[in-house]
Design a protein around this nucleic acid. Structure first.
Lengths: 212, 212
DNA sequence: CATTATGGGAAGCTACACTATCCATAACGA
DNA sequence: TCGTTATGGATAGTGTAGCTTCCCATAATG
């Protein structure tokens, strides 16, 4: 398979494919002469993955590069793999007032305590969570946190299902890629379903009640 | 309050505030003379909301403008309000093969049937969902959909909690803004918690098992 | 052997989210 | 009062991201 066909199979423009190669998102083809190369289905697959992470996942080129490096790299335990997949996301941190940060950490400790979650205070994920809580407070909508335990419950529910489905995968490589795809595209899936559920729940709750 | 203080209170640079005014994200101050204006806490609040939607929510300037227009516009029923909040998001659509689209719609009908959700086939949210399903299939990770019903259950759980919390708000205006903030920042909250739950569940499941 | 395609690289393009500069007027402080 | 600083308003410039266009020498194709 050569460039034109790779482009057709993947739905990505030739110039864009070359760009991805320069950016290190797509490995070079197998050279048959100094300036001719052959590609195969692994290239098609990789291209589709790149587009999925960019378009549906909303990642940047730089994030995709890191994520692919994680996929291609050497792997240790499943648990570490999950960790890898999770440390690359640009959820905005808090515009910290110091007191906002301590308030958020108190709320987080409470939540983790109730859930039996183990708190690693240095973790970037916990930092991101603190950031979101601070933001909610700053805009004056702390009331959203009335539902915080429900959010955590829902998160735990899907996380359990994710890990189960992941554990059923065969090879280590499948698990690695699955962890990343599941993390990134799972976010899109979950938020889309949440939006649909909003309309569904509100329709049901306020059905035929035009003035509420 | 004048520009300097507004900037200090909100943490947004003066030049940026002027930019937001030009972009229609922040109403003009009350003019005290042809070239002097006064601002108040509503401006501070609005600025914080804009930053929250941009930074934490990840919206574009254009999306923020639409969302604010929805907040400031005339409102009808609570259910419509929710709808308003939900139609502005750039979740990538499917790079549709026609057969991918029908496959996705079949899967969606199945899901909605099991959940008792009402399917509006034209809805952009359903389109977005179909897009995510297609993407998952294209990258060869349909197995994620083994957990689809769990995702939907989790979505329904948080959506219910959201609507409950929202219904407890007082004024209509509070409900409108709450719907938007809840939708946008709730996504960030939920995905962050999901990521944390992944590490938590995987730690628990593979605890002390260094080779899995 | 004429035409088309290819790999590779450099430069250009568009959109976005700011940021800097300017200017005439207004507020403030000694 | 008068020099300094701040303000509203407008225009132009900056930096980054994600492509896209153009070019060339070589290779494949009919």
């Amino acid at each position: 398979m050569r460039m034109a066909e790779l482009s057709r199979e993947s739905g990505v423009a030739v110039a864009t494919i070359k760009y991805y190669q320069r950016e290190g998102l797509l490995p070079p083809g197998e050279l048959t002469s100094p300036n001719q190369a052959r590609y195969d289905m692994t290239h098609v697959r990789r291209l589709k993955l790149v587009r999925a992470l960019l378009d549906t996942g909303g990642l940047s080129i730089a994030s995709v590069r890191e994520v692919l490096a994680a996929i291609d790299g050497k792997h240790t335990s499943t648990h570490d793999l999950l960790g890898l997949a999770l440390h690359r996301f640009p959820i905005a941190g808090p515009r910290d007032s110091a007191e906002g940060a301590t308030w958020a950490m108190a709320r987080i400790e409470e939540l983790f305590g109730a859930r039996g979650w183990e708190l690693e205070p240095g973790s970037p994920l916990v930092g991101a969570l603190a950031g979101v809580l601070c933001t909610l407070r700053e805009v004056g909508h702390e009331w959203v946190l009335d539902a915080l335990d429900n959010y955590a419950g829902a998160a735990e529910l899907v996380a359990g299902a994710d890990i189960d489905a992941l554990a059923r995968r065969g090879s280590t490589d499948a698990i690695v890629e699955g962890a990343i795809v599941g993390t990134v595209l799972g976010d899109a899936l979950l938020t889309t379903l949440r939006h649909i559920a909003h309309t569904e729940v509100s329709r049901r709750r306020f059905a035929g009640d035009g003035q509420r």
